[in-house]
C-alpha cells in the first residue's frame, strides 16, 4: 500500500530538508549584520530565544503561561546588577541571572503546575505581577529608571563586547545554543512523553507517567532559557528595566508564538522576528503600533490558525500527501 511507504520517505526527506533549511538560516544569520542594523537583530534574537523557550511549555507541554516576563525580566535585573554593581565578568553575570530566573521558575512551577488551562494562566500571571511590584519597589532595580549603563565587559576576559559586531556574534551563539537545547529537548525521550501529555493527559497517566513532574521539568527548562534570553538582552542594551517584567512582555511572547506557530520548531523565531520588525519600523506611528499589532494579531488568528509556520507546514504536508497518493 502506498500509505505505508510514503510517510517513511517523507520523514527522511523532511529531516534532510530540515538540515538544508538550518544551514541556510545559520548562513543568513551570519551575514545578516552586514545588511541589517545589528542592534535590531540582537533584539530579535533575544526575543526569538525567549519565544522558543515559551513555546516549549505552551506548544509542547500544553501549558499556557502568562507570566514568562517574570523570568525574562528578573534574570535581566540580576545580570545587570551583577555586572554593574558587583563587577562580575559578563559570562558570570549571565550565569547568575539564569540561576535566579531558574529558581523563580521552580517556585512558579511548583505552585502553578497542578492547575490547567485558564487557571494555570491566571496563577502564573498573578505570580509574575508580584515580581513586577517587587521590582517596582526594591531599591536595587532603580524603579522607573531601571539599571542603566550596564557594562558589556569582555567575554572570558578577552572578547570585547563593546564592539557591536562581536556582541552580535556572541548573541547569535547564545541563541543557537539555546535553540539547540530546545530542539533536542523536543526530540528526546522526555519530549516524547511531554508531547504525549499534551495529546492526551489521562492516557499518559494511565500508562504510568506522573505527568506533573514532566510538566514541572519542562516549565523549569523554559524558565531557565527565558532567563538566558533576558540576561543576554540586558547585556546587549546595557539596560534592565520594568518593561521586561511587565505583563505586556508576557503577552508579547504569547503573541509571537501564536503568530509564528505554537508547537512548531521555527514558529516562535518567525513570530519574534515579525513582531520586533513591526515594533521597529512602525515606531513612527507612535501609540498606533499597539492598534496595528492588534489588527494583525486578529487577522492572523482568523486566517492562520496554526500560525505562519504552521500554515506553511500544512501546505507542504498536503502537497506531499497528494504526491504520495495521486488517486485520492
Amino acid at each position: 500500500m502506498v500509505t505505508t511507504v510514503a510517510p517513511v520517505a517523507t520523514v527522511g526527506r523532511r529531516s534532510r530538508a530540515g538540515l538544508v533549511l538550518t544551514i541556510v538560516l545559520v548562513a543568513l544569520a551570519l551575514i545578516a549584520p552586514l545588511l541589517v542594523y545589528p542592534v535590531f537583530l540582537m533584539k530579535a534574537l533575544c526575543f526569538a530565544l525567549f519565544a522558543c523557550a515559551f513555546n516549549l511549555v505552551a506548544g509542547y507541554g500544553g501549558l499556557l503561561s502568562f507570566g514568562h516576563a517574570a523570568f525574562f525580566g528578573s534574570a535581566g535585573y540580576v545580570t545587570a546588577h551583577a555586572a554593574k554593581v558587583w563587577g562580575f565578568p559578563t559570562e558570570l553575570a549571565i550565569v547568575v541571572g539564569v540561576l535566579a530566573g531558574t529558581v523563580l521558575g521552580v517556585v512558579f512551577g511548583w505552585i502553578a503546575i497542578r492547575r490547567q488551562g485558564i487557571y494555570f494562566a491566571m496563577v502564573t500571571l498573578a505570580l509574575s505581577q508580584m515580581i513586577y511590584f517587587y521590582a517596582l519597589q526594591v531599591p536595587f532595580t532603580h524603579g522607573e529608571d531601571g539599571i542603566q549603563a550596564v557594562p558589556r565587559g569582555h567575554l572570558f576576559g578577552f572578547i570585547d563586547l563593546n564592539q557591536t559586531m562581536t556582541m552580535y556574534y556572541v548573541v547569535l551563539a547564545i541563541f543557537l545554543i539555546g535553540f539547540a537545547i530546545i530542539f533536542r529537548t523536543i526530540h528526546s525521550p522526555f519530549g516524547q512523553v511531554l508531547k504525549a501529555i499534551r495529546e492526551n493527559e489521562p492516557r499518559a497517566i494511565s500508562l504510568g507517567y506522573r505527568t506533573e513532574r514532566y510538566k514541572l521539568v519542562a516549565f523549569i527548562l523554559s524558565a531557565a532559557l527565558s532567563s538566558l534570553a533576558g540576561s543576554t538582552k540586558s547585556i546587549v542594551f546595557q539596560l534592565a528595566s520594568l518593561t521586561d517584567v511587565h505583563w505586556s512582555t508576557s503577552g508579547e511572547v504569547v503573541l509571537m508564538s501564536l503568530i509564528g506557530g505554537l508547537g512548531t520548531v521555527l514558529g516562535p523565531v518567525v513570530g519574534a522576528v515579525v513582531l520586533t520588525t513591526m515594533e521597529n519600523y512602525l515606531a513612527q506611528f507612535g501609540s498606533w503600533v499597539t492598534v496595528i499589532q492588534g489588527v494583525i494579531f486578529v487577522l492572523c488568528v482568523l486566517t492562520l490558525r496554526s500560525g505562519i509556520v504552521g500554515a506553511i507546514e500544512d501546505v507542504l504536508r498536503r502537497r506531499s500527501r497528494r504526491k504520495a497518493a495521486p488517486g485520492v
Partner: peptide, 12 residues
C-alpha cells in the same frame, strides 16, 4: 530515560 531531555529520540 523518560526525563532525559538531553538524549536523542534515536535512543528509543
Amino acid at each position: 530515560t523518560s526525563f532525559h531531555f538531553w538524549r536523542s529520540e534515536r535512543s528509543l
